[in-house]
Write a protein that binds this DNA or RNA. Sequence first.
DNA 1: CTAATATGAATGAACG
DNA 2: CGTTCATTCATATTAG
Lengths: 178, 178
Amino acid sequence: MEENMSGFCIRGASVSANSRSTGTKCGRWNPTTEQVNLLTELFSSGLRTPTTAQIQKISTQLSFYGKIESKNVFYWFQNHKARERQKRRKVSFDDDKDVNIGRENARILSTQNFAYQVSEPERLTQTLELFPLNSFGGESEPQKLRVHANECRDTTMFSYKMGEQMDHPPLDLRLSFM
Amino acid sequence: MEENMSGFCIRGASVSANSRSTGTKCGRWNPTTEQVNLLTELFSSGLRTPTTAQIQKISTQLSFYGKIESKNVFYWFQNHKARERQKRRKVSFDDDKDVNIGRENARILSTQNFAYQVSEPERLTQTLELFPLNSFGGESEPQKLRVHANECRDTTMFSYKMGEQMDHPPLDLRLSFM
DNA sequence: CTAATATGAATGAACG
DNA sequence: CGTTCATTCATATTAG
């Protein structure tokens, strides 16, 4: 029984009283097999970051198979994409230094997680005709080669000028942003 | 296996959740409960886009509770505001599987100009007055200073010696130290 | 049962 | 400011 109650998990905040009991009502969505199948199909078909409208429609469709919310779909795609990339990244270098790993363990490295058979786009369209196929039909991932400094360098971001705001009462919401 | 192959800052992978990033260097900021409380209070008071001066003030205050930089405050407000709206967008109507009542509720987000104003002007003023915003001598000067985050070397840049007394600050931190 | 893993959820950081 | 990426936390699930 997954009684989802839109629980908010305050990360770490409620560590007080966390000894054993499930005091923190953090019920989370537990997708059904059908839901996962459909989501996986969509993903395999190329859908990576659905728009809000798409998310809502998917959610509506999936609600037939069980309780679901839009944010669940949103998170699912976020996580699925992120983890795929994450695992892909781990495999990327495929060091020789770890060749001794057993073939059993190699499944994580070499196996595509999404070996699920990709249904034809047509069928996908039939299933839920909500995706403009151009969104993923002939478009490749942007693949923006991003440097992405991953450290604490100063990003010189907020250089938005501030006027005489200290003078003003804090009420005036300045729009000067960036 | 949960491998930490990244080799980066092992940010207490399996440690308890809350402890602020003690000893962690270039990992991402992990706000303490007190910091989050204060930020949330300010947000609830109506502060949405703090100015540079405000950011610095807030950052200074929050640094008492743990390592923090100005950009963290900046990002926090950015994210918090954005996700407030994002939730509005991804609001999944508690769709009853049987009842088909999506129409009426579908357009609850007709007006969105509600949240961008302070709930109560006086309250905000009071709240901000708790922060002395008059640090700059000549207020007439535009004082376009950019928030300059320090380098990765933020090894206890704040010389606030945490006394033994502040171990358990009251919940209303804002009132306590002002 | 406990330990390890898979994954939903959350959020800090940053891009466009 | 909306959107997206990356990392982390919490929990359901599964392996041992």
